[in-house]
Amino acid sequence: MKTSTPCPHCHKPLTVEHFEDFSSPYTMKCPHCSTKLKETKVTPFLLLLGAVAVPLLIFLGITVKTFLTGIIPLVEKVPTALVFLAFCYPLYALYEKFNAVVMFNKGNLHSKK
């Protein structure tokens, strides 16, 4: 497994931690030279994965809220997004880490022109 990949513009190393820190895998900037980067090899795969994962994560949040409502009736008035963040965020963090690792190891970075 690679530990770093060079920026296509400034050739300074980018690590998997840099990829995890990007706000989304589709809007990336080099932390050294601020050049906008695009990935051309695995982006369609990640879009397809996101189209499947997001509904599953929403379903999971609703299921957890329904389960907790049976135990604590007060949870029914709490927005589902807050319940998801409180109980399912580690699963979402693993999904984001997986995206970063796939893009880092299999991706093909280019500078946006």
Results as ranks from 00 to 15, higher is better:
residue 80 T to I: 13
residue 109 L to V: 03
residue 61 G to C: 06
residue 39 E to N: 04
residue 3 T to R: 15
residue 55 P to Y: 04
residue 58 I to T: 14
residue 21 D to F: 08
residue 113 K to C: 01
residue 38 K to Q: 15
residue 62 I to M: 12
residue 25 P to H: 07
residue 58 I to A: 14
residue 79 P to D: 00
residue 2 K to L: 15
residue 45 F to A: 10
residue 112 K to D: 12
residue 58 I to Y: 12
residue 90 P to Q: 03
residue 43 T to Q: 10
residue 73 P to D: 05
residue 88 C to N: 11
residue 62 I to Q: 13
residue 51 A to Q: 09
residue 69 T to L: 07
residue 6 P to Y: 02
residue 89 Y to T: 03
residue 9 H to K: 04
residue 91 L to R: 04
residue 56 L to G: 11
residue 39 E to P: 04
residue 90 P to R: 06
residue 108 N to S: 15
residue 98 F to G: 12
residue 50 G to H: 00
residue 97 K to W: 10
residue 56 L to F: 13
residue 86 A to P: 01
residue 58 I to L: 14
residue 99 N to A: 09
residue 79 P to N: 02
residue 10 C to T: 05
residue 95 Y to K: 01
residue 104 F to N: 01
residue 28 M to F: 03
residue 92 Y to E: 00
residue 113 K to V: 08
residue 54 V to L: 09
residue 46 L to G: 05
residue 47 L to Y: 01
residue 83 V to S: 03
residue 78 V to S: 07
residue 81 A to N: 11
residue 23 S to G: 08
residue 40 T to Q: 10
residue 85 L to W: 14
residue 16 V to T: 11
residue 107 G to H: 09
residue 8 P to C: 01
residue 25 P to Y: 06
residue 24 S to C: 09
residue 98 F to T: 07
residue 82 L to M: 10
residue 90 P to S: 01
residue 70 G to Y: 04
residue 100 A to H: 03
residue 94 L to E: 03
residue 34 S to F: 06
residue 59 F to Q: 10
residue 62 I to S: 11
residue 3 T to S: 15
residue 105 N to D: 05
residue 63 T to N: 07
residue 83 V to G: 00
residue 104 F to E: 05
residue 112 K to L: 13
residue 45 F to M: 14
residue 52 V to S: 05
residue 70 G to Q: 12
residue 38 K to T: 15
residue 2 K to V: 05
residue 112 K to G: 01
residue 32 H to P: 02
residue 112 K to C: 13
residue 85 L to E: 10
residue 27 T to A: 11
residue 8 P to Q: 06
residue 73 P to I: 00
residue 105 N to S: 12
residue 20 E to Q: 15
residue 41 K to N: 15
residue 34 S to T: 06
residue 8 P to A: 02
residue 80 T to R: 08
residue 97 K to E: 08
residue 50 G to E: 12
residue 96 E to P: 07
residue 36 K to P: 02
residue 49 L to Y: 02
